[in-house]
Amino acid sequence: MVKRIRIHEEYCIGCRLCEIICMVKHSASGKIIKAFRKESERPLPRVRVEEEGYTSFALQCRHCDEAPCVENCLTGAMHRDEATGVVLCDEDLCVGCWMCVMSCPFGVVERKEKGKTTVSKCDVCAGKEEIPPCVKNCPNEALTYE
């Protein structure tokens, strides 16, 4: 069974710590203060907190079973890792046509920071973490990994 990050919007408190932690995780140094204060290129968070009224939740790539981004990719850069079931983008193959950005029903695939011709999306920290840091650092367990 492939583990997924699950969203519990009833407990999301809108603090956006997940966004901050995600940014740091994908930064060059991986150090929070340095990433924010010293690094000129700050990565985009791959998780976004959506908010309206009292409702908020942290949304990131759902790694859909039938993923439009994978189906619509011209070069085969967007693909599913067979072992983990995670949808990933091979940056070497990506030509920056943004078909994935347009076809994502959740709006969780974005253009990377300025000057890059590839996309930014949740990679579940490339499987390097037992529990993704956004989940681990959520103060209210509004994100779980199961």
């Binding site: 603090c15 956006r16 901050i20 203060i33 924010f36 204060r37």
Partner: peptide
């Protein structure tokens, strides 16, 4: 000031 990264978690909380 050395540490604050203006992430605004405090503002929201």
């Amino acid at each position: 000031a050395e540490r604050c990264i203006s992430c605004q978690v405090c503002v929201r909380q």
